[in-house]
Design a protein around this nucleic acid. Structure first.
Lengths: 247, 247
DNA sequence: GTTCAATGTTAGTCTTGCCGAACTTGGATG
DNA sequence: CATCCAAGTTCGGCAAGACTAACATTGAAC
């Protein structure tokens, strides 16, 4: 069954479930899906049932939701589309990296396989999108090893931004404004938990930025081995139950 | 009411009604709309009623269908989107001019106003699409003056192809294969009505091509004043009741 | 171990866009 | 000018995807 046989809505559910597991091991819930899809939980329940009937995911009532290999394949295809389109919009049409998400969200359902291939070719087969997310090639793609959320990073250590979640457009705009972009280097000068006036150094300049819970979990970093006393070892102490990276 | 408030289906109806009057004065019928939309006439009746209720067209039962200024404005916007997208696909992504129609048909509903503007800018504000159709700027656009269907052109006269209707993908591919493209010069060496083995001269080469009814009404030409004995005057003798161009 | 609030599910309804079947209209034909 | 048929319309129904309201389950707190 090719992706195009699925409704836009089904494609969105699969993509959302897949991306939820890309950077976290916490299983996705009906409530979270409802929020992200902008619908009511009852709608999600209905939809999950249909996807289950199509063999795209497994789900016992009140149980966890998990993609089957078939569902995962469709999801990866959608993620590839989304990230290639974002890259295309930035590199070819001059969009800002903080304003491509919504456009790609719509386009990913509209463009043909042919167009995706031509875009991939035109861009020279890119491997990362403008937010730093990996672009799957054709099959499943490994998660970025060693990356952690900024809220879990050790203070004082210099870190490299590898990814900024594109879930919240307003936040992307904010990060863009202050120069906090993929590949940026930064250092935090405060103890955790970080707040909405956290002092950091970014491209040589010291400034206070909003690193409240939402912001500090949207930014993913790797710790530079040279500058950190701790390397990639990090202690887990978080309210969300996120997993940690271990040496 | 911005275009985005209309359903894809409504946008398609308006565009179809508008383009039907672009090169012909024959009023569009429910049956023709149903064929072009790929739905049943009863569906068209329903849809027309809804568009009428929205003030986008006028229609008395069993009467003619005509766009209101509001409906026309929406239609022109869709035509602009379609033609800009076709141009973009050809010039930027290397599509053949005969394979862009279906892709644009889907994309025109998906891209944002912002993206259309950026595409227009990136292309340098083009005025004609790959099929030779004029790209409306922002408001209504005049029809191409003096262009006639190839089936109505005088034999022997040398004509310039200004437009090839993009309604039939297979036909576009055929024309592309034989080198009959917008801007091509050609001469017909037979009397009307032309058939599926009509002898023509195209870029210096004489060949027999299919100019049956469908093909000869899809190609629009202007008559070169220098080479034609008749200038732009043409006699109407057609089974379809198409109008003619008159000097 | 009970309780209860949060989470998830079921049931019924609405809208959109489509269909087929049955009916109406109007113009061409004789 | 009466007829008839193609074109157009109306109507009931269906599927998808959304909603609200009511009901069920889970598990954490006491």
């Amino acid at each position: 069954m090719p992706v195009s046989d699925l409704t836009n809505s089904a494609q969105d559910y699969l993509k959302l479930i897949w991306t939820a597991t890309e950077w976290s091991t916490t299983p996705i819930t009906v409530t979270v899906l409802a929020e992200r899809m902008g619908v009511r939980p009852s709608t999600v329940s209905d939809s999950i049932k249909k996807l289950k009937d199509q063999g795209l995911l497994t789900h016992a009532p009140y149980g966890t939701i998990e993609l089957t290999p078939a569902g995962s394949a469709h999801a990866v295809d959608m993620v590839r589309r989304h990230r290639l389109l974002e890259t295309f919009l930035v590199q070819v049409l001059g969009y800002g990296w903080d304003e491509v998400h919504d456009e790609a969200e719509v386009l990913e359902h509209a463009v043909s396989d042919t167009m995706i291939e031509r875009i991939d070719q035109h861009l020279g087969h890119p491997t990362r999108d403008p937010h730093g997310d990996p672009i799957p090639s054709a099959d499943g793609q490994p998660h970025r090893p060693g990356a952690i959320q900024l809220g879990h990073a050790e203070p004082i250590s210099e870190v490299t931004v590898v990814r900024i979640s594109d879930a919240d457009p307003a936040m992307l705009r904010y990060f863009s404004d202050i120069g906090l972009t993929p590949d940026a280097q930064l250092t935090i000068h405060q103890q955790r938990p970080y707040t909405d006036t956290t002092t950091i150094t970014l491209s040589g300049q010291q400034k206070n930025i909003d690193l409240g819970p939402a912001a500090s979990s949207a930014v993913w970093v790797t710790t530079s081995l040279i500058n950190s006393r701790h390397g990639q070892e990090h202690i887990v102490e978080t309210t969300t139950g996120e997993s940690s990276a271990r040496k």
